[in-house]
Amino acid sequence: MIASMVQSKAQRAKFLAFCLLPTMILFAVFSVYPLISGLYYSLFKWSGSGAKKTFIGLGNYARLLEDPVIPKAIGHDYFLVFFKVLGIMVLATFFAVVLTQFRIKESGFYRVVFFFPNIMSVVVIGILWTFIYNPDMGLVNSGLRAIGLDGWTRPWLGSLTWALPSIVLPAVWAGIGLFMLMIMGGISGIPASIFEAADVDGATKWEQFWKITLPLVWAQLKASIIYIVITTLNGSFVIVQIMTEGGPNNATHVMGSYLYQQAFVNYNFGYAAAIGVLILALSLATVLCLQLFLKREKIQY
């Protein structure tokens, strides 16, 4: 009787294999293999379009150190990380609090409105905003002209100064919805009695936000920040590629778009692989730093 209830060791192994094997195989094929081959190719001078490969050891890495675009691209990556985290977190938290705690009638409608950009492809968002920023026919410049601010119009994406900040806006806009929902989930998990008690004690909404809401949704905030950082470091490539292709004069290149340019426009596949390794190293280092930085006692009331 007991024997039939306890699984045999072999059965247990079979069950585990059944659960883990598909994931392991996918992981090996789509993560481990590309990772290793990326490392491997970064040691070669290879165009990526022919069979001719020359082993050059750390040559591509030496080139990384001398390439003037690399420090620029890294700077742009962290510029985007900083402003995206700031913009998305502030706005998403603000909207989440307003929609959950202020009992607005149309909160369902706003939820849809804010989440809407999340169901659009980044490619569509990029193209849409390229039109919005178009120097001649775009919404931004036409709007400025309509209200008499002609002096403020500029070729947003074509300006060495304004191109990168112009990319932040759609990136933030596209990101808010998902994190707003995550934070709303966190807030609705806080027992209403805590807020009621705070009300009785005479705490203002502002105090309630700082003392109750924020500490109790910290886990969600932390997860959101790390997620934004990782997706920005690895994924801003798409929006940059669509909107500016890294230009004008490399003013918006992020590491991902520069990697793409080196691999598929300039035919330096090996060098691009080295850039890929650099992205990996920087993402890892950043996430580790964040983990330390965001470490905070878990609070329960």
Binding site: Y133, N134, P135, D136, P155, W156, L157, G158, S159, A163, T244, E245, G247, P248
Partner: peptide, 21 residues
């Protein structure tokens, strides 16, 4: 030189040209 040229790709610049901008 059109001050917005750096924001345009080739079809956009060609479109501007066709529209006599």
């Amino acid at each position: 030189i059109d001050p917005g040229f750096a924001a345009l790709n080739h079809t956009q610049s060609q479109m501007n040209f066709l529209l006599h901008k």
